[in-house]
């Protein structure tokens, strides 16, 4: 049982907690928060692997994930604001897949 193992399981736990949130919550805002958690799981994994092997690529990948998360949050929130009037922020009511 190496520390890396534990950290990786924890990162998977973060990811699955987020996944559960996206699947279980109907509020779009909560789904976006869950998505953030989903993204932070792999981020932890990357940094842990990088630190364990003493290489800089882990942090590099973390930065990539960060960029993705930033773009995702900005777009997601804009879309949420856009859709909130029509659906009351409930993703199940947005099932016609129209703005």
């Amino acid at each position: 049982m190496t520390p890396l193992n534990i950290l990786l399981v924890l990162s998977a736990g973060l990811f699955f907690a987020g996944l559960f949130g996206v699947a279980a919550r109907r509020t779009i805002l909560m789904q976006l928060i869950s998505l953030e958690i989903m993204l932070s799981g792999p981020a932890l994994g990357f940094v842990a692997v990088g630190a364990y092997h003493g290489s800089v690529e882990g942090t590099g990948m973390f930065l990539m994930v960060l960029g993705l998360a930033a773009a995702e949050v900005a777009l997601g929130l804009a879309i949420y604001l856009h859709m909130r009037r029509a659906t009351g922020g409930d993703s199940d009511l947005a099932h016609r897949l129209r703005g």
């Binding site: 907690a17 949130g21 909560m30 928060i33 932070s40 842990a48």
Partner: peptide, 21 residues
Amino acid sequence: AIWAATLALAAAVLSVTRASA
């Protein structure tokens, strides 16, 4: 690091189950 990550996981699990945004 493990302790902090565990805290993060606990906070995340709580976060996705809260009713209040």
